[in-house]
Amino acid sequence: MNDPVSFATEFHPSSSPIFFVELAILTLLVITSIAMLRMRRLFGVVMLSGIYSFLSAAFFVALDAVDVAFTEAAVGAGISTVLMLSAMLLTARREKPYAPGHAALAAVVCVIVGGALIYATLDAPPYGDAAAPANSYVGQAYVERSAVEISMPNIVTTVLASYRGFDTMGEVAVIFTAGLAVMLLLGIGSDRGGKDVRDVPRMVGREEDGPGLGEKPTLDDGGKSPSPKGGAS
């Protein structure tokens, strides 16, 4: 932190255009998340969270973390949108009104955790510091030796697939199992699964907490729904 050469300013002078891009994206992220918080319609929230992951992946690219951005784009914008929509098929389309007491508690928890995280970043080495632990010990060895030892041009690939090969294999096995389990639970690709999904929610009829597919066909619910979001706005 007290390094005389501040790498952060060297890499990211605040006059550089990319700095303003980062600032703009961060502002948009804040706006999006506030909008997500205020929205009661779950579909809108899913849509906004898709937008949120697109923007945050762009932010990762601005921070030179391209591999993280790849993951965020594929998982955040692609898969998780689909998964959340699938989940919405089974549950309600609208958020339940929350009790104010819980909100206060949640706010306290958020403030404490957020404060702790911000406090933790104070100890982190400045952005792009060559003397930071991440860049000096094992990391440096990977950078120096992977080209010779593995002869693959991409260092991330060599670390994941070779140096940490067993680790990765375990991860892949876990994720594969989880994916299989999700497919079994959702019944994707089976005839029965689809029918079950439709039949169960039909038993329930209430509008706010009833599952989406089981909602009563109230015709004039359109513009003037007396739903929880009225109270929130």
Binding site: R93, G212, P217, D221, G222, G223, K224, K229, G230, S233
Partner: peptide, 11 residues
């Protein structure tokens, strides 16, 4: 029956 695709958040 499903919820309205449109409207709803007019207000």
């Amino acid at each position: 029956p499903v919820e309205m695709p449109g409207g709803e958040e007019q207000n």
